[in-house]
Amino acid sequence: MSVDRLAQARDLLEREGVEAAISAAGESGDILAVRVHVAERPRLARLAPGIRALGFRYVAIELVDGP
């Protein structure tokens, strides 16, 4: 996954008001991992088609902590 696509994904998210750390994940870097609270999921789900259009196959929330 190119850095360009990652930058484009960051731009897209920021335009929609989502400011979060993002990274490419998976063996082929085809997952966009977004570090946000799980309560943000519905909003990210709405943005997922646009992110997939950038070349990512999946959009996911990075879960970092337990309770």
């Binding site: 991992a33 997922a48 959009v59």
Partner: peptide
Amino acid sequence: DRVLLDVEG
């Protein structure tokens, strides 16, 4: 190493 939750389910 990483645990992700797919936003679309």
